[in-house]
């Protein structure tokens, strides 16, 4: 259900105007005390098919599953191709999802610290998408799989040099309870 604030936001978007002043300071997590609403606070955007872009993020609606460790998948420099040595890890993830129907998964893509932060965000997304695509090929329902990229913002290991970078070019897995 659309609340009044959201309607105001929609009007502002359509007019290309800025929201200034009262009524909207707290509706996105702008400070430590406010909560962080999810997708429902985003103004409606119509996709290429003429329908509103929809989709709820698992992070906003599902409870995180703790205590299950899924091994990270590593990538070569500037690449989102899945190395043959890494696919066995993805098969383990598929096995888990096929055996646990109530679990959904967010695949998280990461890059090493080199290069453009903007490009790395896209590269991280494509790494996550490559893993997601492989999981679909292994029989997992695509509706149970979402992606997120952290680009080079969240390295697994601090420092520089190939020994560090290769640990940071990775895909990670976050399970949620449907």
């Amino acid at each position: 259900m659309m609340n009044s604030r959201m309607m105001i936001a929609n009007i502002a978007l359509v007019c290309g105007l800025l929201m200034v002043g009262t009524g909207c300071e707290s509706w996105w997590g702008g400070d430590e005390t406010s909560d962080t609403p999810g997708i429902t606070d985003v103004p409606n955007v119509i996709g290429e098919d003429g329908k509103n872009i929809t989709g709820t993020r698992f992070e906003d609606t599902c409870k995180k599953v703790e205590g299950i460790t899924l091994a990270p998948v590593y990538f070569a420099f500037d690449s989102y191709a899945l190395a043959p040595s890494e696919t066995a890890k993805i098969e383990q993830v598929a096995k888990h999802l096929l055996a646990n129907e109530s679990h959904v998964l967010v695949v998280e893509g990461h890059c090493d610290a080199r290069g453009s932060a903007e490009y790395n965000l896209a590269l991280g997304e494509n790494r996550a998408q490559a893993i997601r695509g492989h999981l679909v090929n292994l029989g997992v329902d695509g509706n149970r799989l979402q992606t997120r990229s952290f680009g080079s913002e969240k390295p697994a290991m601090a420092g520089s040099g190939e020994a560090v970078w290769k640990m940071n070019r990775r895909g990670e897995f976050a399970l949620y309870q449907k």
């Binding site: 509706w27 606070d41 993020r57 997120r148």
Partner: peptide, 11 residues
């Protein structure tokens, strides 16, 4: 104030 402009699945 601020507001999300795009927060869809993925990027």
């Amino acid at each position: 104030s601020r507001r999300p402009l795009a927060s869809f699945k993925g990027l």
